[in-house]
Computed example of a mutant assay.
Amino acid sequence: MSQQFGRKISLIIGQDAGAALDLSDLRIVFNVQRGDLQTPNSARIRVYNVSNNTAQRIEKEFTRVVLQAGYEGNFGIVFDGNVIQVRRGRENPTDTYLDITAADGDMAYNFATVNTTLAAGSTQADIIKVCADAMAPYGVSVGYVAADLPANPLSRGKVLFGMARDHLSTVAKSTQSLWSIQDGKLQIVPETSYVPGAVPVINAQTGMVGMPEQIQNGIKVRMLLNPSIKIGRLIQLDNSSIQKYEFGLSISQQPENYKIASQNKINGDGYYYVMTSEIWGDTRGNDFYTEVICLAVDATGGIELRNAASGVSAPAPAKLGVINPYG
């Protein structure tokens, strides 16, 4: 099994199609926030000592940024999105910086609109298609959309008018699912399910830092930067390493103690749904981490397991259980 060493990073900024610049050789400090909510994922990227001509081109010409990071054998996209703001500054007498603020699917989220009519008998899938078509001109394509979402056929014709994001939120509410944009792709996952795929094993050998911890919102675990961790998918943890939530001692905290412990339970088989992640790093410093907050999953069948460092996979997975976010 290979170990996680030999950091790699790639930062490309350019247009959706056309000219682009590779800033990978410069010092880069970044922070990426991702989640399974409809609010776009975000990134703040600082690039040091960019030439004046390059900085001017970035400010005036470019609209998209793609950040890839990881280690030899485990390298991939950690952010792909629209440039929201570019600003320049000076950190000290010798070092200048260029700050790039970006959001994943921001243009589609803010500007995609729908204006059409659906006939009686149309399903939620038809509404999703209309919204996806509206987002396509803004660079968002269709990613994973669960095939088993309730159809909920319309009993009469329906006019769809307004922001595509609002209609997707209505679909999500009526089908008990979550929608988000992940790396420029529309993703819709049932609240009691997850995106199928390989399940990275997170332990000390594959880069886990410290011990996983049961907190108020779920199970928190930190690891060396790992691009294979994706929102809406699963990871596997060793339950014996998870530090349980510490109860408060005051009488007023007792009901809350047991509520938190039951809602954010530890899964018997060690499978957890990735709800949010934060990825941060410094190509000239020590920071190079991924930290996730996840929820327990009832995994009752076989699962395809992948060692996050070696990339080795087991046979194809069988059907799994469901997420129980409320205990």
Score class of each variant (00 low, 15 high):
82 N>E: 02
281 G>F: 08
234 L>Y: 12
35 G>N: 14
194 Y>T: 06
238 D>W: 00
161 F>Y: 10
7 R>N: 07
8 K>G: 02
179 W>V: 06
270 G>W: 10
300 T>I: 12
288 F>M: 14
30 F>C: 04
34 R>M: 13
99 D>W: 08
306 R>L: 14
18 G>M: 02
171 V>M: 11
168 L>H: 05
307 N>T: 10
259 K>W: 00
5 F>W: 12
240 S>E: 03
122 S>N: 08
70 G>M: 08
307 N>D: 15
91 E>S: 12
305 L>Y: 15
95 D>L: 09
103 A>V: 01
90 R>F: 07
63 T>E: 11
313 S>W: 00
143 G>D: 11
152 N>M: 08
119 A>N: 06
138 Y>D: 04
42 S>K: 14
235 I>N: 00
301 G>Y: 09
31 N>V: 09
98 L>Y: 11
177 S>P: 08
35 G>T: 13
17 A>G: 00
219 I>H: 10
325 P>Y: 11
126 D>M: 12
121 G>R: 13
237 L>D: 13
174 S>N: 15
275 M>W: 06
104 D>N: 08
191 E>I: 11
115 N>C: 01
68 Q>Y: 01
139 G>H: 02
7 R>S: 04
227 P>T: 11
141 S>T: 15
76 G>A: 04
297 V>Y: 11
128 I>D: 08
256 E>T: 14
276 T>Q: 10
181 I>W: 00
164 A>F: 02
101 T>G: 04
299 A>S: 07
93 P>Y: 00
21 L>E: 10
238 D>C: 03
295 L>E: 08
88 R>A: 03
135 M>A: 05
120 A>P: 01
239 N>V: 15
31 N>L: 13
294 C>A: 14
199 V>M: 05
295 L>F: 07
156 R>M: 01
248 G>D: 03
117 T>Y: 03
197 G>R: 02
31 N>P: 08
268 G>Y: 12
22 D>V: 03
210 G>I: 01
61 E>D: 13
79 F>C: 09
311 G>E: 02
198 A>K: 15
156 R>E: 11
99 D>A: 12
189 V>T: 13
166 D>A: 04
181 I>P: 05
224 L>M: 15
21 L>G: 04
32 V>E: 01
281 G>A: 04
324 N>Q: 07
101 T>K: 03
11 L>H: 03
55 A>R: 10
231 I>T: 14
220 K>I: 10
82 N>A: 03
25 D>K: 15
250 S>Y: 00
13 I>G: 05
197 G>T: 06
115 N>H: 07
186 L>C: 05
252 S>R: 15
57 R>D: 04
140 V>L: 07
155 S>R: 01
160 L>E: 03
218 G>R: 03
297 V>A: 11
62 F>A: 05
40 P>K: 00
47 V>R: 05
271 Y>V: 06
145 V>K: 13
238 D>Y: 05
162 G>M: 02
10 S>D: 05
125 A>E: 05
274 V>Q: 02
112 A>H: 08
263 Q>E: 15
157 G>Y: 10
216 Q>P: 02
77 I>H: 08
90 R>V: 09
325 P>Q: 10
226 N>Y: 14
110 N>M: 13
292 V>H: 08
200 P>R: 01
130 V>Y: 07
163 M>I: 07
112 A>R: 07
268 G>V: 14
318 A>K: 07
185 K>N: 06
96 T>N: 13
44 R>P: 11
35 G>Y: 06
77 I>C: 10
205 Q>D: 00
70 G>W: 06
312 V>M: 15
47 V>D: 02
175 T>V: 04
